[in-house]
């Protein structure tokens, strides 16, 4: 599955989860996602509890995530916890640690138990 499709599915799962919608109600953020090997750029936006995603660069972001495309796909499809490549140095983030923790929790709540 292509990274863009993976992100779309991630967003749909998130929006379908009432706990996540409630949790993200006051979390308004723009996240830039950069695949370092292919040069592809995507974005995820969180506003009023709903997430949306798309391809291309948006001006200004609160959080920037960089990794190889397959690592990003693995994270956003639930095959890998973000912490694993992050603690390995394969996933680099630029932005607030609170926002990073929030993303980690989102993946945890979608695929966690």
């Amino acid at each position: 599955m292509m990274l863009g499709d993976v992100l779309q599915e991630f967003v749909e799962r998130c929006n379908a989860n009432p706990r996540l919608t409630a949790m993200n109600r006051d979390w308004t953020r723009d996240v830039a996602i950069l695949a370092t090997d292919t040069g592809e750029i995507f974005w995820i936006q969180s506003a009023e509890g709903q997430l949306s995603a798309g391809a291309g660069a948006k001006s200004g972001a609160d959080l920037e995530i960089r990794a190889d495309g397959d690592v990003l796909a693995a994270i956003f499809s639930g095959q890998m916890a973000p912490t694993e490549p992050y603690n390995q140095g394969d996933l680099l983030v630029h932005g607030s640690q609170d926002d990073l923790l929030r993303l980690d929790v989102i993946t945890l709540m979608i695929w966690g138990e």
Binding site: A32, T36, G39, A61, D62
Partner: peptide
């Protein structure tokens, strides 16, 4: 890949 400007 160039570093992008962040809002905060």
């Amino acid at each position: 890949m160039a570093q992008r400007a962040l809002t905060k």
